[in-house]
């Protein structure tokens, strides 16, 4: 859509100050319409959101699209964010929900093509596309890492989201509850079940 670079330098773009500012200050400025502050937020979150998307979707191209969609949405919805200190949990929420929606529509697509609603098969059958194959070099060098890589794709989307946010992104239980929109107790239960499932899968794999 709008992928041409900015044509005219705007005041907020020529700001020389790259002085370190608190994240909450950048968030308030972005809410106030400062696109330069938003740009700094984009750069501080894009990588971790992509890692989240990749582990949720197992597809690099889809994960990249989800990052773009979520960050554009964050700009549009920023004025609705009440507490600027909640930005991290909030942007994780936008990204996680985007991924869960994509997984749901994948499942629907598959169901309508095959005429069967076998939801349990969803995780194992990954979208063919930009999968980083073989698994990343470091994970490959450790057999354990590679085993987890595969085991993770056998988790249901809901369990995977909770586990990835907790163990790979170190969000707190309340932050995960907020991101996914379920009670903290549910998050706790899902993470425990995800751990069990992964440990089992991996011990069978070994």
């Amino acid at each position: 859509m709008l992928d041409q670079p900015d044509d005219v330098p705007r005041p907020e773009a020529v700001t020389p100050s790259e002085r370190a500012l608190r994240e909450s200050t950048l968030v308030v400025r972005a809410q106030d319409g400062d696109a330069g502050a938003f740009e700094r937020l984009v750069h501080s979150y894009e990588k971790e959101l992509l890692r989240l998307g990749y582990r949720m979707l197992s597809d690099l191209g889809e994960a990249q699209d989800a990052v773009q969609d979520s960050l554009v949405l964050s700009w549009r919805q920023l004025p609705t964010l009440e507490d600027p200190r909640a930005f991290q949990a909030w942007v994780y929420q936008l990204m996680t929900r985007r991924c869960l929606n994509l997984l749901r529509s994948r499942r629907r697509r598959r169901t309508s093509l095959t005429g069967e609603g076998d939801l349990d098969q969803e995780p194992a059958q990954r979208a063919e596309g930009d999968h980083l194959d073989p698994p990343s070099a470091a994970a490959q060098s450790s057999a354990l890492g590679a085993g987890l890589d595969v085991a993770l794709t056998t988790l249901s989307a809901e369990l995977r989201a909770c586990w990835v946010l907790k163990e790979l992104h170190h969000l707190s239980y309340p932050e995960i509850a907020y991101a996914i929109g379920v009670p903290v107790a549910t998050v706790r239960g899902r993470i425990a079940r995800a751990r069990l499932h992964l440990a089992k899968e991996m011990s069978e794999w070994r």
Partner: peptide
Amino acid sequence: RLVNQPSALAAIVAIAR
């Protein structure tokens, strides 16, 4: 390999602007 394309990031900011 687990990176966003610079052009995609530029597009996000361009839309914001």
